[in-house]
């Protein structure tokens, strides 16, 4: 087995070097910022709802990229954090606590705690074994919510009112929610960018590229990886808060292993270890799903074939492709 396992592509090329990734992200954010106006002008205001969903998943994919792209830690249970965040909102709301700040705080703490406990155990393993142990914890969280009858069990829980801020229903309109989600995305992006560039981030990347060397120069990777895992879990939990508000409904279905797999696919599709790639991957994945599913009932076959072709004929996902188109011939 390759010992680097999951690290791979990131180690081979620093595709779309720092500045390119930043410019790419800024372009995406600018497009997101004017999107509601464009949607209105184009006579399709509903597109904002779809775009909100895309942004929510982009946040989750971004958090996964921190551990996957920079830490070579492949979590196959990442959807569980989103689910915990979403359930924090719905459960607090059924008990009359509708303030988004309280909900978000609880969501972040709950998902961070779950990440701390499961991460502390999981990080003893490496590579594929790590993938599977995170899957195991994800499944446990899923089955726990399925059997939790008091909060709807498998049928899920309807959120009758979106979260409020100090009593004001700021998120009630689609536009309000959209910009709130966008603000979280931009905030998470710059936070993670700073994290990655810091000394902490350098240790994380160093471990990804060569674990033995990092250990030889006196770093124990474990606390760094665990911290990154907890941070990623907390951000995904925040994405869950937004998801609950966007669908006005929570369900254990948000936590299935298929959903975790989709998040991995988004990150890999976009290109790992660039942060921008994760956002692009979420956009690409969900837009493809949206467009293809409206064209043909059997759209999965086209979608699947595209994924295969992308792997076979582009290296490093969408970001790799963009890097080669815009960044000259590196390879």
């Amino acid at each position: 087995m390759k010992d680097t396992d999951t690290a791979p592509a990131g180690a081979r090329t620093p595709r779309l070097a720092g500045r390119g990734a930043l410019i790419g992200a800024l372009v995406l954010f600018a497009i997101f910022a004017v999107l509601p106006f464009a949607a209105h002008a184009a006579g399709d205001p509903f597109f904002i709802v779809t775009a909100t969903r895309i942004i929510v998943f982009a946040i989750a994919a971004l958090s996964l990229d921190l551990i996957l792209g920079y830490g070579a830690i492949v979590s196959f249970g990442h959807a569980a954090f989103m689910g915990i965040g979403a359930y924090s909102v719905a459960i607090l709301a059924t008990h009359g606590i509708g303030d988004v700040l309280v909900q978000a705080l609880v969501a972040v703490l709950a998902s961070a705690l779950f990440a701390l406990v499961t991460g502390a155990i999981s990080l003893r393993t490496k590579g594929v074994y790590f993938i599977m142990i995170t899957l195991a914890f994800g499944q446990m969280a899923y089955f726990f919510m399925v059997s939790l009858s008091a909060y709807g069990g498998d049928d899920g829980l309807t959120l009758y009112d979106r979260s409020t801020l100090f009593g004001a229903p700021l998120l009630d309109g689609d536009i309000g929610l959209y910009y709130a989600a966008l603000a979280v995305l931009v905030g998470a992006f710059f936070l993670l960018r700073a994290v990655v560039a810091s000394r902490f981030g350098r240790v994380l990347r160093g471990t990804r590229d060569n674990r033995v060397r990092m250990q030889a120069i006196g770093f124990s990777p474990y606390p760094y990886q665990l911290t990154a895992y907890v941070l990623a879990g907390a951000i995904a939990g925040l994405a869950g808060v937004l998801l609950a508000n966007q669908t006005e409904f929570v369900s254990p279905a948000y936590m299935t292993w298929q959903r975790s797999g989709e998040l991995i696919v988004m990150v890999v599709l976009g290109g790992m270890g660039t942060l921008t790639g994760a956002i692009a991957g979420a956009v690409g994945f969900l837009m493809l799903e949206e467009i293809l599913s409206s064209l043909w009932v059997h759209w999965h076959i086209v979608f699947g074939a595209l994924l295969v072709l992308i792997v076979l004929y582009t290296r490093g996902g969408l970001a790799g492709l963009a890097g080669r188109v815009f960044g000259g011939r590196r390879r």
């Binding site: 597109f47 669908t247 006005e248 948000y254």
Partner: peptide
């Protein structure tokens, strides 16, 4: 998928 359904339902009636 409930979240997909919720979105598609909104798209049906609103869009």
């Amino acid at each position: 998928k409930p979240d997909v359904a919720a979105n598609e339902a909104r798209a049906l009636v609103e869009r």
